[in-house]
């Protein structure tokens, strides 16, 4: 069916990347239409996970190891962003009192 295992791997990875793109669109729609701030921050957390997966699959598709480094950086930045937004949510409440 396929010429080689490499072609099979490439085709499977590319089609799974399309599915991941649809997932990213769904999480982005929750970020845009989310009724509250907390919903948007949860959607950001989800988008970080999708971005790390996209980096891993891109590393498989292109065969370049650097994309795994990119994934590690994205995970680090997403963690710091989530902590920052959580602190923002709590601080807003303390200022109101």
């Amino acid at each position: 069916m396929f010429e080689s295992m490499d072609a099979f791997l490439a085709i499977a990875t590319a089609s799974l990347l399309v599915v991941l793109g649809l997932s990213a669109l769904g999480a982005a729609s929750r970020m845009i239409f989310g009724p509250g701030y907390a919903d948007r921050f949860v959607a950001l957390d989800m988008l970080t996970g999708v971005a790390v997966s996209v980096c891993a699959l891109t590393a498989i598709l292109t065969g370049r190891r650097e994309f795994l480094d990119v994934g590690l950086g994205v995970a680090l930045i997403g963690f710091l962003a989530t902590i920052g937004f959580a602190a923002f949510l709590e601080k807003k409440e303390r200022e109101q009192k």
């Binding site: 907390a38 921050f41 949860v42 957390d45 923002f88 949510l89």
Partner: peptide, 12 residues
């Protein structure tokens, strides 16, 4: 991150 975000969402 999930714990911090959940706590902040509850408090807010």
């Amino acid at each position: 991150a999930g714990h911090l975000l959940g706590r902040a969402a509850y408090i807010s």
